[in-house]
Amino acid sequence: MTRSLLIAGLAAATLTLGACASKPKTLPPEPGPAASNSYQGSTAATPAGPVAGSQADFIASVMSDTVNFDTDRYNIDAADQGILQSQAQWLGRYPNKSITIEGHADERGTRDYNIALGERRANSAKNYLVSVGIDPARINVVSYGKERPIAIGSDEESWARNRRAVTVTVN
């Protein structure tokens, strides 16, 4: 009987070890042109660029999202008109999109003065877009004054970069 138990134990151990033995692992193919064609997953095409109508699409499609201004000014010059015209064309392609135009100022001047100046800058950009046919209900304006600089520094180059109106898509 002892011999039968010994044989049964050896058989059980052999089966257990056999079940635990690792199977040979297959590694994925090396990356490269041939490997990318062998993928059997989803057949949906991946977009080559940003999602149509997104903020990234807006940035990629327009001349610029930013209009810059001279010191204490909020007038739209010829260069600004070109930028805003390209924004108007993009908005024409996406009639359900709304935008916010953010007005900014440099660090000089009081907080209240710069908030008012930023608002005048944002409204100047809005008024131009409205003049070329964009529905004013699609455009919100906000002024950050000197609270959100993109260039840190107390020099003319930094100040010039901070005097701006920036267009941001909302929906």
Rank of each mutant, 00 (worst) to 15 (best):
R164T: 03
S38K: 08
S38L: 08
L129Q: 05
Q40H: 10
S36V: 15
F58A: 03
E30K: 14
S154M: 13
A52G: 01
G153P: 01
I76V: 05
M63K: 14
I7E: 10
S64L: 04
D106F: 08
G118A: 07
K23R: 15
I7C: 08
K97V: 12
I150Y: 06
A34M: 12
V141D: 03
A125L: 08
R161C: 06
G41H: 08
I83L: 00
P31I: 07
V130H: 06
S86P: 01
Y94R: 02
E156G: 09
G92V: 00
S38G: 09
A160F: 07
T100W: 06
L84S: 00
R138M: 00
L17R: 10
D72G: 12
L129P: 01
A56K: 11
V130N: 05
A60H: 00
A78F: 12
Y144W: 09
A19M: 11
R108H: 08
A11W: 07
P47V: 07
G133I: 02
T2L: 14
I99V: 14
I101F: 02
R93A: 10
D112C: 06
G103P: 04
S86Q: 04
E102S: 12
V67N: 01
R93K: 15
G49F: 06
D70R: 12
T110G: 15
G153Y: 03
S4N: 12
N114S: 04
G9W: 08
C20T: 13
E107G: 15
T46F: 06
N123E: 10
S38R: 07
T43R: 09
Y94V: 02
